[in-house]
């Protein structure tokens, strides 16, 4: 078994390797920055006028941005699955598995590098948001808490996607599969429109959907909650920070060991 120091040092080597790829393949960085900008602008100006249900006086930009943040980082995390599948296909996982390195470093290095990409995305989105009228109306500490919560949640999703990548093994299939799952997950949530406008069944799902709570938590922490909205019935939405953290911890507790186990047993063919 590797010591903690060895695991950290191996993970740093792998993270660096993954970030070098980001530097050399501009598509990745373009995807991580342009698509969030597009989303911010699109929702702000195309749907901005049509979306109903907000109390008068609340800026749609303020309501919208935390939703975009959450959706983007969750999608950003799906990169983890595709990248692992690519490494598997190209025989790199075999190479790593034949080395006397820490057993978890390949996955840690991967998820940490993807977290780095998500940080870049969030910064770009926040700046774009500020341009189109989004504002932080809370303390700096709360705002930082909001960003951290989004990143912690995304990091947990990365580990889930690592497992998917190791099982599915084809980057394109991982991408399609995660789109099919993640897309509804981020839309059947209060990402873009208030839950009050949902039909009942969907609303119940949305209330307990952790994407809803991460969005609501971010809204609260950034001070973007419209004042006049009715108090939610669901416990999850009443305690969105706690509920989101519980999900993140649960996902990590399940998928870190499962993914490491799958990594140790997988092979390129």
């Amino acid at each position: 078994m590797s010591t903690l120091a060895e695991t950290v040092s191996d993970s740093v080597v792998i993270t660096r390797r993954n970030l070098i790829k980001v530097k050399r393949v501009p598509d990745l960085i373009v995807f991580a920055t342009l698509s969030p900008i597009m989303f911010v602008v699109l929702f702000r100006y195309v749907f901005g006028g049509a979306i109903q249900g907000l109390p008068p006086g609340v800026s749609y930009a303020e309501f919208l941005l935390p939703g975009i943040f959450a959706q983007t980082v969750v999608f950003g995390s799906t990169v983890t699955g595709a990248s692992i599948a690519e490494d598997l296909q190209k025989g790199l996982i075999d190479r790593f598995r034949s080395l006397p390195m820490s057993r978890s470093a390949v996955l840690i290095g991967r998820t940490v590098a993807d977290l780095g990409l998500n940080v870049i995305s969030i910064v770009v989105m926040a700046l774009t948001g500020l341009v189109v009228g989004w504002r932080i109306n809370s303390s700096i500490a709360e705002a930082i808490g909001g960003f951290l919560l989004l990143l912690v949640f995304a990091f947990a999703i990365s580990w889930l996607m690592a497992m998917v990548g190791l099982l599915v093994r084809t980057p394109e299939v991982v991408n399609n599969a995660s789109f099919i799952v993640i897309f509804p997950l981020t839309f059947i949530a209060d990402t873009f429109v208030p839950l009050e406008t949902f039909p009942t069944v969907l609303r119940h799902f949305a209330e307990w959907n952790p994407v809803s709570t991460v969005v609501r938590a971010a809204r609260e922490l950034f001070g973007n909650m419209p004042a006049g909205l009715p108090e939610p019935d669901a416990w999850s939405l009443q305690n969105p920070v706690l509920y989101t953290l519980l999900w993140a911890v649960a996902i990590l507790a399940v998928f870190v060991p499962l993914s490491v186990r799958a990594y140790l047993r997988t092979s390129s063919r």
Binding site: K21, R24, G91, L92, L99, P100
Partner: peptide, 17 residues
């Protein structure tokens, strides 16, 4: 693993590095 070197049948290099 610490004692061996392996060159697999298909080259396993990181093409971005």
């Amino acid at each position: 693993r610490a004692a061996i070197g392996l060159t697999g049948q298909y080259a396993a290099v990181d093409e971005y590095l």
